Amino acid sequence: MAARSEARAARLLSASGRATSARVDPGPYTNGVPDTEYLVHLAIGTPPQPVQLILDTGSDLVWTQCRPCPVCFSRALGPLDPSNSSTFHVLPCSSPMCDNLTWSSCGKQNWGNQTCVYVYAYADGSITTGHLDADTFTFAAADGTGQATVPDLAFGCGLFNNGIFTSNETGIAGFGRGVLSLPSQLKVDNFSHCFTAITGSEPSSVLLGLPANLYSDASGEVQSTPLVQNFSSLKAYYLSLKGITVGSTRLPIPESTFALKQDGTGGTIIDSGTGMTTLPQDAYKLVHDAFTAQVRLPVDNATSSSLSQLCFSVPRRAKPDVPKLVLHFEGATLDLPRENYMFEFEDAGGSVTCLAINAGDDLTIIGNYQQQNLHVLYDLVGNMLSFVPAQCNRL
């Protein structure tokens, strides 16, 4: 999980509709470890063909594997078959949507002359290549009365796909700020998600275009913080993180550590596609040292490294006390419950509890592990992010 979050951080460093909802649930276990992505369930085409896409607030392209799929990762849910959809059509390279791709060209040969061909590559080695198309998307209606269909949404038909894809996903649903993202294409003013426990299997809803009632089933105070504009990166959602408290001590981390630089680097984003929160090296070291000093347990050297992962040895099946972890944002405070920053597992030598935070580069990433059972609302018009603790499986 730590390695995948670090790879995700490298990936991020590179690069009017009807109210609808979609089901989202944690990815399955792989070799006994939970896949740290949340999968959105919807359908594409007429008749609808189901897809399972990683909910990703850090990117904008919506894409899924498509037949004939010469190079694809194997999934129980097979590739989308465009030939079976009566509403499917390819987009020309002259289309405005094609212009919004980072890398695109005019396809020839089997893809048809003037077809919009895309390459979407990431710093972690993941890549999808295919053609940009449009089709009808089918969602659950937000009022629970049936289904909502939206025609002519642009998406990538991935024919050559490879990289770090290890869950049951068939592609990625970009929820970022870019023109190609699902919220942008639906022209919604807001969207919200509430992630159930990553170690469980219960689903919840993603609401698009319907202001969420954050007070329903909430177990705390609703708080709001501004979304910070970064014109060098129009895809991710940036926040103003001011500081971190461990236990009762506000750590001496300069606010500039988490702030956007004038050249558009650094800053703090909230990201649904990253598992663990990632901090700059200097900030992580202070968090690491504070936990080491305050947790009265021996560091587990077999699973810990000096500055990337911190684990403690504990008596078998014990759940020892750990210090509080609080994130301070502009106008809001996120007091994390233990299960949102510590995780336990058992190995041959006994039990281990680990801090679910990584050391990274200058970009701070608030991951989905820290967002479990937190109802998060993105106000795209007011440029605000609101959140409140909630039992997400009850929403």
Results as ranks from 00 to 15, higher is better:
residue 13 L to A: 12
residue 15 A to N: 05
residue 19 A to R: 09
residue 23 R to M: 11
residue 36 T to Q: 07
residue 48 P to I: 06
residue 54 I to P: 10
residue 60 D to A: 01
residue 62 V to G: 04
residue 69 C to N: 00
residue 85 S to K: 10
residue 95 S to E: 12
residue 97 M to D: 07
residue 101 L to Y: 00
residue 102 T to Y: 12
residue 112 G to Q: 10
residue 116 C to D: 05
residue 134 A to V: 02
residue 134 A to S: 13
residue 155 F to E: 00
residue 157 C to A: 03
residue 161 N to W: 12
residue 162 N to D: 05
residue 163 G to V: 10
residue 167 S to A: 11
residue 172 I to Y: 06
residue 173 A to I: 00
residue 174 G to D: 06
residue 177 R to E: 10
residue 178 G to E: 06
residue 179 V to A: 15
residue 179 V to M: 12
residue 180 L to E: 08
residue 180 L to A: 12
residue 184 S to L: 05
residue 189 D to F: 07
residue 191 F to I: 00
residue 192 S to C: 02
residue 196 T to I: 12
residue 206 V to F: 05
residue 208 L to E: 06
residue 221 E to A: 14
residue 233 S to W: 08
residue 240 S to D: 15
residue 249 T to L: 02
residue 250 R to M: 04
residue 254 P to C: 06
residue 255 E to Q: 15
residue 257 T to K: 13
residue 262 Q to S: 10
residue 266 G to S: 11
residue 266 G to K: 08
residue 278 T to D: 06
residue 282 D to Q: 14
residue 290 A to Q: 09
residue 295 V to A: 11
residue 296 R to E: 14
residue 301 N to Y: 02
residue 302 A to T: 14
residue 326 V to K: 14
residue 337 P to V: 13
residue 338 R to E: 14
residue 343 F to V: 03
residue 357 I to V: 15
residue 359 A to H: 03
residue 364 T to P: 04
residue 369 Y to E: 00
residue 380 L to H: 04
residue 386 S to I: 05
residue 386 S to Q: 08
